[in-house]
Computed example of a mutant assay.
Amino acid sequence: MDRRFSRQGEQEQADFFPIIAWEKTGEFCNNYFRKGQKVAIIGRIQNRSWNDEQGNKRTVTEIIAEEAYFADSKKDNYTSDGFEPKNTGAEGFFPIEDDDLPF
């Protein structure tokens, strides 16, 4: 995720966190989300520690997804590079744009 603010003259920075999604949430993410796509995740943060093969202590901060949603508009998902979500028969969530409303 890009940081909202950066110092003048500095390059924008982004943070990346591993997201763990289990069961139906994981299946939904696998079937419909693509690299670089904006998504909204509801879940919890988890820290884990372990010792690697060399005996060094390692720590990771992960996000455990409980819910996942599209954050791009539906129109943004169909770009010139041909992106389309896989159609696996599962129902996905697309936010409704004002111009999509019938009234």
Rank of each mutant, 00 (worst) to 15 (best):
A68W: 04
D98G: 05
F17V: 14
I41P: 08
E67P: 00
K38P: 02
N31Y: 09
A68H: 04
A71C: 04
T25W: 00
E66T: 03
S80H: 09
A71P: 03
T88N: 08
E53G: 07
F70P: 03
F93H: 08
K86S: 07
P18T: 10
P95C: 06
D100A: 07
V60Y: 02
D76N: 11
T25C: 10
E12W: 06
Q8H: 09
F16V: 14
T25A: 09
K57F: 01
F94H: 10
G55K: 00
I19M: 04
E66F: 01
E97D: 15
I20D: 07
V60L: 09
I64G: 00
G89D: 06
K57H: 06
E67A: 11
N56I: 04
V39R: 03
T79P: 05
F28L: 13
N87G: 09
E66M: 02
G9M: 03
E27H: 04
I20S: 09
E53M: 10
F94T: 07
N51H: 11
R3D: 13
Q11E: 12
Y32K: 09
R44D: 12
E53A: 13
G9P: 03
K86C: 05
Y69P: 03
R3N: 14
A21I: 02
E66Q: 07
F70W: 06
T25V: 15
K35D: 10
K35E: 11
R7L: 12
A40E: 07
E10S: 14
K24V: 01
K75P: 01
P102G: 05
M1A: 15
E10C: 09
P95L: 13
G43R: 07
E62K: 11
N30K: 10
T25S: 02
K86Y: 04
D72W: 12
T79L: 05
R4V: 10
D99M: 05
S80Y: 07
D15V: 15
A40D: 03
S49R: 13
I96G: 01
T61S: 11
F28H: 14
R48E: 15
A71G: 09
Q11M: 11
V60M: 11
F17D: 02
G55C: 05
K86P: 04
G9L: 08
E12L: 13
Q37I: 07
Y32T: 06
Y69D: 04
F93I: 06
F28W: 15
G55V: 05
I45P: 03
N47H: 14
Q54K: 14
G89C: 03
D72C: 12
N30D: 12
N87M: 02
Q46W: 03
D76F: 02
Y32P: 00
E53P: 01
